[in-house]
Nucleic acid binder design. Sequence first.
DNA 1: CTGAAAGCGCTTACAG
DNA 2: CTGAAAGCGCTTACAG
Lengths: 336, 336
Amino acid sequence: MSSLKSIAADIGVSHVLVSRVLNNRMGTTRVSEKTREAILRRAQELDYQPNPLALALKQGRRGVIGLFVHGVGAPGSDLNVDFILSATQKASDMRMNLWLQFFEHDDEFISACNSKLLRKIDGLIVAGISHPQLTKKLNEMESQGLPVVSACHKDPEVRDFVNFQVDATAQCYLTTAHLIEIGCRRIAHFNVGASWPFRQQGYEKAHLEMGLLVDKRLIFPSKNYNAKAGYESMALLVESGETFDGLVAQSDAQAVGALHYLLERGWPRERWPKITGVDNSPIAQFYSPVPLTSVTAEMATCARLALGALEQKFKREPVESHLVPPQLVIRQSTVP
Amino acid sequence: MSSLKSIAADIGVSHVLVSRVLNNRMGTTRVSEKTREAILRRAQELDYQPNPLALALKQGRRGVIGLFVHGVGAPGSDLNVDFILSATQKASDMRMNLWLQFFEHDDEFISACNSKLLRKIDGLIVAGISHPQLTKKLNEMESQGLPVVSACHKDPEVRDFVNFQVDATAQCYLTTAHLIEIGCRRIAHFNVGASWPFRQQGYEKAHLEMGLLVDKRLIFPSKNYNAKAGYESMALLVESGETFDGLVAQSDAQAVGALHYLLERGWPRERWPKITGVDNSPIAQFYSPVPLTSVTAEMATCARLALGALEQKFKREPVESHLVPPQLVIRQSTVP
DNA sequence: CTGAAAGCGCTTACAG
DNA sequence: CTGAAAGCGCTTACAG
């Protein structure tokens, strides 16, 4: 195990000098060029890395970033995996450890935000779903000196924490515009809950910008983002008797559920609507026989940005929220 | 921030005495009952927790467990999420941080197992897929004093590391036996690769034990564990002209792909085979209109056991590998 | 301009 | 039986 001490002993100087040279923080200290080089060379040879524990202890830090994840995305969408994977890499770059915690319910979330937390971590990233009571708690924490950054799906207009999220409106704007471009004129939409209107706004915006009217009769409520919900919404759509040549679902699982309904009813292949999902999840990629056109959720980017923002907060640099633009991924389900 | 020092100051003793009392390691030191109680009370009031950094530094530990994950399971199966979630909780109980790393390719995996690693972590958990060259590297690491525990899917007979995995044979034994019990007599099987024969062995064992012959003509190769592969295998099965009343797939995604083929061909519902998957993943739970019978992958249990084993290795206690028994989860796809 | 000392929070071996 | 000192690995304020 190489340490400042061992290097110092090898060269024949004090470990203090080694520390100064390696950190290039000489202060008023002088060192001969020869000694300097010897120290640097030896450090390189041993591939010296300062003990992060000692460093953090000295600096009064914990060396740990809390990552509180309230699962998002349809089950099986791998959204959380993408998020964690990316956060993990960024944390590693920052020489920080992650204190990962998963939460199912808001109360668990809130009760984990207590004073003990302050002792464990240097900063907190909250991912998933925003919630008024949680926000209050987090504000408390931050006023006690804990930097907090969120990566939640929320109304971008509400400014509480520095937040990183995908541009939800752009998601369904992209898919809808794509369908219009390939010739769809009656595009159905499955809408999950009025509290989260952004994707529908994208759907409407694309119509508006491209000179089409939004036909509200083509918009159907969906219980949630899973396949069952999509299946049920498609049943409603078909039973309504409306004609449609496209479907903008709010998740890949929904889209798959919808397709499944059509398959089950023996819907003739040539009359299938062009279908798009959201999340670009494995189910979209591997769905057979029709891989799904989808749009990315940008979880990895959000994670990276959130940790980067925390890094800046540590340095007391200003940081700003950001809406990450999604990418359209075209697959067979929308090939004309 | 409470520390030994602050408690000591409050009571009017040395921080050394506080340390001794709180750890109940008095050695030859004596303390009056009154002082003792005062110390304990004050520590409780402040909800004192020793600084893990200082502790680890003192004890020459890193306070970090490496968790190297080579993704397993079909994409979207949430297997990795379950694993990480459980590992996270157990690590937290152990007052250890996790150094999570994900790997796509074996080489990344192997090149991450270098001497730097020894400086970063106190122990290593390797999850995912076993690999001869990796094993060699890990053996090297362990001989250099790094405790290694694996949670890989591998031949249970090969003894290299202490390993925790689900009993793969039991998985398809359970699903097959279930199908036989509900009256299936011609059960097809999708087999992924000869290098991993354990699930098929379960399929065969169930037949044997329940007095049925295995008809090799019902066993079809599948390229991998995703839906596309299941779809293709089902195509082979149907084209073969063999009659079948059940299907034991090797993953939920495969089962879904297979169902999808039948739907697409307009296979009459009353002639649908009873279908089982493996992994008990979201796709099985939420598949519409037929939620899938499946069998658990026990990722959470394996993670917990693996970290527990590492804990025991730290204490130089002996540990043994373990095959975790899976659970059958019956859903609509096998309701008679 | 140089070097030794203090200190982050903790534990334990070792003098008196 | 008691208490003060050493030390984990690091950095920096502060005497000479």
